[in-house]
């Protein structure tokens, strides 16, 4: 590592129990901590690894709670306030536990022209929640998002990791049936 790299070696990351969610112990495994160190060494300043490590944290803990922010901050020798500022800036970090699946419908221009409002209305009715909300059974978090850059197949949505293209109400129904 070159100049400006925060030294993480002399700090033992605090292991803390997530207060808001007693089931979650906010702590990476040894292997994950090795991966954190590897990521930190790839960037000229270890801090460059913050976004990748936050992705890792979200995968591991399900979302980025304040406890997770503090834990990650300690791994980088950063203030929790800095990490909080970063986490709240980006749309892909969840600050509350989302549903088991994320359905994110694009509502930007090309999707709008291709009928996104109808798709959104259909989902609202099917799921019984508004965009930004999670169904009571915690199955689906329903979002509307800006252009996902698959406008040639509008209207479209991102369902978890996958792009679902050329949506119709029937296709939505089939999709929802396939989500456990």
């Amino acid at each position: 590592m070159t100049d400006g790299a925060p030294s993480t070696s002399n700090r033992t990351p605090a292991v803390q129990a997530g207060l808001s969610d007693p089931a979650t112990i906010v702590s990476f495994s040894e292997a994950q901590l090795g991966e954190v160190r590897r990521l930190q060494s790839v960037y000229p300043d270890a801090r460059g690894a913050l976004l990748p490590v936050l992705h890792m944290a979200q995968e591991t803990f399900g979302y980025i709670s304040l406890e997770v922010e503090e834990y990650v901050a300690a791994l980088f020798d950063l203030s929790p306030a800095h990490v909080h500022e970063v986490v709240t800036f980006y749309t892909l970090y969840f600050r509350e536990r989302p549903g088991r699946h994320i359905v994110a419908v694009c509502h930007n221009l090309s999707c709008h022209l291709a009928g996104a409002p109808g798709i959104i209305a259909h989902l609202k009715q099917k799921l019984g929640v508004d965009p930004g909300e999670t169904t009571a059974d915690r199955r689906v978090t329903f979002l509307t998002v800006e252009c996902l850059c698959a406008c040639e197949a509008a209207p479209m949505a991102q369902v978890d990791d996958r792009y679902e293209l050329n949506l119709t109400p029937e296709k939505i129904d089939r999709l929802l049936e396939g989500l456990p």
Partner: peptide
């Protein structure tokens, strides 16, 4: 080559916003 994933923010397409983000800050 280091492959780096963003976290959802259109402004990180602007080159200096992108660099801020790559450095581990808000974009």
């Amino acid at each position: 080559v280091v492959v780096h994933r963003g976290a959802g923010a259109y402004i990180c397409g602007e080159e200096t916003g992108l660099l801020s983000s790559l450095e581990g800050k808000k974009g």
